[in-house]
Simulated scan of single mutants.
Amino acid sequence: MSTRPENANESCVGPNSTEAGNATSCEGCPNQQICKTAPKGPDPAIPIITQRLSTIKKKILILSGKGGVGKSTFTTNLSFALSLDEKVNVGLMDVDICGPSLPRMTGLDGEQIHSSNSGWSPVYVTDNLSVMSIGFMLQNPDEAIIWRGPKKNGLIKQFLKDVDWGELDFLIVDTPPGTSDEHLSVVQYLKESGIDGAVVITTPQEVSLQDVRKEINFCKKVGVPILGVVENMSGFVCPKCNKETLIFFPDSGGAEKMAKEMEVPFLGSIPIDRRIATSSDLGESFLDQYPNSIAYNSYMHVIAEIKKNLG
């Protein structure tokens, strides 16, 4: 599986080649210096990561080319939903290094990572839902994380190599927007243990869809199966009358049309419900709190589609 940059030309030798950054085809590539100075050849940590993750049945990436589409909110509610069954063990890994929001969304603000002989221990929401995030490592939650790519990649590697997840049915990986260092690192480190699929989050308007198309093409180029696309914030549900009004109008046909054009599954739409944001701020499960809402039904439909596509 290739992990070359999305904008690389067809003769790209790939970042793991001994000629990376020095080959003729590297001239003019914006990533030339990164590839030139990066370690060459297979990363010796990959076999260790593969062994560490051998007790995890399914690994799912949550992606979006656009920020602000509710990706972390969806990730949190997906994890809460999967863990409703007490027999299902779920791990949630936050690789949004500069904007870690999962500690707050899961009600774990102020918690810290503990280490033992078996490695770092994730922080537990419930007995069968655990979380790992750089947010647990910050003394001040308002502290800016100003890191270059290699340091970000090093932490992602450490999360995969050193965290003692135990036996999991699902590992859900929340990623930052885009198709940059963090995404390439996750794909590279997980390639031997296997990625079961990616869920791509978007909103209905074209300004979001144009970035999400890039994310879908990224998945296709690096060999990550696409479980499907979710259209988030597809409409506003009035809390009094339960009627739905379109806020972000899908001028170009929305996510369903885009998914059809790009030949990937469309998982469904989730409306705006102010209680989703409130639940996230309070670190509560929206699905536990509001099982009679329209958004609850939408979430459960999407999650059922994800399970079906996972086989």
Rank of each mutant, 00 (worst) to 15 (best):
G65E: 11
Y290N: 14
S252A: 11
E19R: 14
S79A: 15
S185R: 03
I172H: 05
K151V: 11
K161C: 04
G235N: 12
P42D: 15
H114T: 09
Q289T: 15
T3I: 15
V13D: 11
S285H: 04
E19S: 15
I134D: 04
K152I: 13
V123I: 11
E256N: 08
V237K: 13
S83I: 11
G154D: 11
E167R: 09
A23G: 04
I303W: 00
P141V: 11
N22R: 13
S208E: 09
N297M: 07
S121K: 15
C238T: 05
A81D: 02
F286A: 01
D169S: 08
L155Y: 05
V237A: 10
K58R: 14
T175Y: 02
F170W: 06
V237I: 14
I49S: 03
G178I: 10
S64M: 08
G28N: 08
T245P: 03
G149I: 05
I97V: 14
Q289D: 12
S193C: 14
D94F: 07
K220P: 00
K307E: 10
E261Y: 01
N16T: 11
S101M: 14
K57V: 01
D164P: 00
A38E: 15
K308E: 07
N16R: 15
G21I: 12
K220L: 03
I134S: 04
K243D: 06
P204M: 06
